[in-house]
């Protein structure tokens, strides 16, 4: 009898998660199609398909629009999953790679790499800088956080201080090298503009390499919701669990930041919305967060492209404009939660 009850409930939850996921997937497809057709040159769906097949509009479709759509989806999904892991590790719905300073450190790394190496190296130097910045940031976060007793709120605030410091350092470097400041600012705000096929392939390979870690992290994510004493009693090392989740989150963030710049609010927004829709269990939460992240970023990019024609507004800015009110909503909800 119990097994029946279990399977019934499990199925029901599965159904809801499945529906949510399918709807999100459908919306992503719709937006992808729109993004392929709308732009400086409007194409019909037929023309897009023709272009994909190598026809008349092949250049604009394959060189410009497809990479842009693909990178929005991949990077958005990465931010979403990175946010889930970080929120799980810190047991805090307000945590995101942005809030705990990881994206700022990644940005600082990219900026320094871009300035200190010859321009010709930029293709390799900037992603390496992003990766180094994010990893160093995460290591500082974990080491300092640990010396603070590893308390979760303390860890988050250490991250905040780290982010503020990295940001100030970046601004200081901008003062030292004022000529580079303008491009840097736009990149830091996050933009999908100028995505190339190479970038898509690079990000896809990176994410494929991360995939096994993402799967392991997803399996362990639920346990992150216990307090440390319970984890120890279960024979799980809290430091290993939380540190591992943070590292996977940082790897995903680094990949995404390297391809589209800093869009930290996606990491805050997508997991939270996903949790409202399908609940907190990792097996539903992780995929739905990835889908919602991909959906938000592709939608933000589409909106940014068409809202102020002929100018483009970087997608990261659109995401921030959406993220602001959402955060306020979140705070109000948090404040109203009486236990």
């Amino acid at each position: 009898m119990n097994v029946d009850v279990m399977s019934r409930t499990t199925n029901r939850i599965d159904l809801r998660a499945l529906t949510t996921g399918l709807i999100a997937l459908g919306l992503i497809l719709v937006i992808a199609v729109l993004a392929m057709t709308i732009g400086a040159v409007t194409l019909s769906i037929g023309q897009v398909l023709d272009g994909l097949a190598g026809g008349k509009s092949a250049f604009i479709v394959t060189q410009y629009r497809v990479p842009r759509v693909a990178i929005s989806i991949l990077a958005g999904g990465s931010f979403g999953v990175a946010g889930v892991f970080l929120q799980g590790a810190l047991r805090n719905p307000l945590a995101s790679p942005d809030v705990v300073g990881i994206t700022k450190c990644a940005g600082l790394g990219a900026f320094l790499a871009g300035i200190l190496t010859p321009p010709a190296w930029a293709i390799w130097a900037v992603p390496s800088g992003v990766f180094a910045g994010a990893m160093i940031g995460a290591l500082i976060l974990l080491t300092v956080g640990r010396s603070f007793g590893g308390g979760i709120a303390a860890l988050a605030l250490v991250g905040v201080a780290l982010g503020l410091f990295a940001q100030a350092l970046m601004q200081y470097v901008m003062v030292l090298f004022p000529t580079r400041a303008d491009q840097a600012m736009i990149w830091l705000a996050g933009s999908v503009y100028g995505s190339t096929g190479t970038k898509v392939v690079a990000l896809a390979i990176w994410l494929a390499l991360c995939l096994p870690l993402v799967i392991v992290a997803s399996m362990k994510l639920d346990a992150g919701g216990f307090a440390d004493d319970t984890l120890i009693s279960l024979g799980i090392s809290p430091g290993l669990l939380r540190g591992g989740l943070i590292i996977v989150s940082v790897l995903l963030t680094a990949g995404a930041v390297a391809s589209v710049g800093s869009m930290g609010f996606l990491g805050l927004l997508a997991p939270h919305a996903a949790r409202l829709m399908v609940g907190a269990r990792a097996r539903h939460l992780v995929p739905v967060s990835a889908l919602l992240g991909a959906l938000t970023l592709s939608a933000a990019d589409l909106v940014g492209r068409i809202i102020a024609l002929p100018n483009e507004i970087p997608a990261g800015i659109v995401a921030a404009v959406i993220g602001g009110p959402y955060l306020i909503f979140l705070l109000i909800k948090e404040a109203g939660r009486h236990e």
Binding site: N92, L94, D98, V99, A153, A156, L157, V160, G163, M185, I186, A189, G264, F265, L268, A308, N311, I313, P314, G316, I317, A320, V321, G323, G324, L327, I328, L331, E334
Partner: peptide, 22 residues
Amino acid sequence: LALAGISLQLVLAALVQAILIA
């Protein structure tokens, strides 16, 4: 509470940045 405030500050700063870049 400090974390909430700082998150708020980050969002507001991102908006400022957005408006200025736009």
